[in-house]
Every structure is written in structure tokens, then in C-alpha cells.
Simulated assay, not measured.
Amino acid sequence: MKYRGSCHCGNVAYEAEGEIKSAMACNCSICQRKGSLLWFIPRPQLKLQTPDENAATYEFNKHLIKHRFCKVCGIHPYAEAVGPDGQPMAAVNVRCLEGIDLEKVPVTHYDGRSR
């Protein structure tokens, strides 16, 4: 299935393809503050609909994840990294997808604070 997603103002927009079986809520220092629910997909399944330069990048700690956010409204619609299998992956913020009933998405909690 294809989903459309964006930041609040629409300056960063994308399509994500796949099946949302669950989302992850992480309690690390950034995810806890953002409150995002993450759905992991191979990076090629995330297609930007706006120029890449519309999103700024924030990295911290080990600099393994590129947290992408809108330069205008500040919303974090996705992140990019390399998965455990060595392939590029995207962490899509399910809260930024159109037409999603969040109550129906199973959420797994991840203790990123302890990592």
C-alpha cells in the first residue's frame, strides 16, 4: 500500500510504500521528546515528493541516524540510516501519514535510553 506523508506545513512531503504491521515508540533522548511512532521500511520505498534540501538533518550520539525535519515548521516526518542488514532504511513517522487510524497500529516499545 502507498501512503502519503508530510510535515505540518507540507514543505517536506513523501510517499511510503509497504504494509504497516506495527510502529515503534522509542524512549531515547530525541524520540521521547518528538513523540514519533516509527515504521521501518527499506529506503527505496520512501519517495520524496519535495526537494531533499527542504529537510534539514540532525545527528547526535554515534551519528548513525539522520533525523530529518522541516526547516519551516520543525516537524520530523522521517529519518534515514543503515539497517542491521547493511541496507539503507527509512524510519517513517506514522503520525505524519495521511489517513492512518493510530488506534489500529500496534505499538512496540523500545528502550533506546539504555543503549
Results as ranks from 00 to 15, higher is better:
Ile65Leu: 12
Gly86Thr: 02
Leu46Phe: 05
Arg95Met: 15
Ala91His: 09
Asn61Tyr: 13
Pro84Cys: 08
Arg95Leu: 11
Ala55Glu: 04
Ile100Phe: 08
Val92Ile: 10
Pro51Ile: 00
Val92Gly: 03
Asp85Val: 12
Gly99Asp: 04
Arg43Ile: 05
Gln45Thr: 02
Ser36Tyr: 15
Pro84Glu: 14
Phe60Asp: 09
Lys71Asp: 09
Asn93Cys: 05
Asp101Gln: 12
Arg43His: 09
Cys73Pro: 12
Lys47Gln: 12
Pro84Ser: 15
Cys96Phe: 00
Pro88Glu: 12
Asn61Asp: 13
Leu46Asn: 06
Pro44Cys: 10
Gly99Asn: 09
Leu37His: 11
Leu48Tyr: 03
Asp52Ser: 09
Lys66Asp: 15
Arg68Leu: 11
Tyr58Val: 10
Gly74Val: 06
Arg68Glu: 07
Phe60Lys: 04
Cys70Gly: 12
Ala79Met: 02
Glu59Leu: 07
Leu46Trp: 00
Glu98Asp: 15
Asn93Ala: 03
Ala55Ser: 14
His76Gly: 10
Ala56Asn: 06
Arg95Asp: 08
His63Met: 14
Lys66Gln: 15
Glu80Cys: 14
Thr57Val: 12
Gly35Pro: 01
Ala79Asn: 01
His63Thr: 14
Ile65Asn: 04
Asn54Ala: 05
Pro77Arg: 08
Val82Ala: 02
Ile75Lys: 13
Trp39Gln: 08
Pro84Trp: 14
Cys73Glu: 09
Lys62Phe: 11
Ala91Thr: 01
Asp52Ala: 10
Arg68Gly: 04
Asn61Thr: 12
Ser36Ile: 14
Met89Asn: 11
Val92Ser: 11
Leu46Val: 03
Phe69Val: 00
Pro77Phe: 03
Leu46Gly: 11
Lys62Asp: 11
Cys70Asp: 12
Thr57Ser: 15
Gly99Thr: 06
Leu97Gly: 07
Leu97Glu: 07
Ala81Glu: 04
Ala56Tyr: 00
Tyr78Met: 04
Cys70Glu: 00
Glu98Trp: 01
Pro77Val: 01
Gly35Asp: 06
Pro44Arg: 00
Glu53Asn: 06
Ile100Ser: 13
Ile75Trp: 04
Gln45Val: 03
Ala56Trp: 03
Glu59Met: 11
Pro84Met: 15
Asp85Pro: 13
Ile65Cys: 13
Thr57Trp: 05
Ile100Lys: 04
Phe40Arg: 06
Leu64Pro: 05
Thr50Trp: 00
Phe40Gln: 13
Phe69Tyr: 04
Ala91Asn: 12
Gln87Lys: 15
Gln87Met: 15
Asn93Asp: 01
Ile75Glu: 10
Arg95Gln: 14
Leu46Met: 10
Gln87Leu: 14
Ala81Gly: 08
Val94Leu: 03
His67Cys: 13
Asp85Met: 13
Thr50His: 07
Gly86Cys: 09
Pro88Phe: 13
Arg68Thr: 04
Phe60Tyr: 09
Gln45Pro: 02
Lys71Asn: 09
Met89Thr: 14
Lys62Asn: 12
Asp101Leu: 04
Asn61Gln: 07
Cys96His: 02
Ala90Ser: 12
Lys47Gly: 02
Pro77Asn: 01
Cys70Arg: 06
Arg68Gln: 13
Phe40Ala: 07
Met89Lys: 12
His63Trp: 06
Cys73Ala: 02
Leu38Phe: 01
Met89Leu: 15
Ile65Arg: 07
Ser36Phe: 11
Val92Glu: 02
Ile41Asn: 02
Asn93Ser: 10
Asp52Asn: 04
Ile75Asp: 05
Val94Cys: 07
Lys62Pro: 05
Ala91Leu: 12
Pro77Tyr: 07
Ser36Ala: 13
His67Ile: 03
Thr50Asp: 02
His63Cys: 14
Ala81Asn: 11
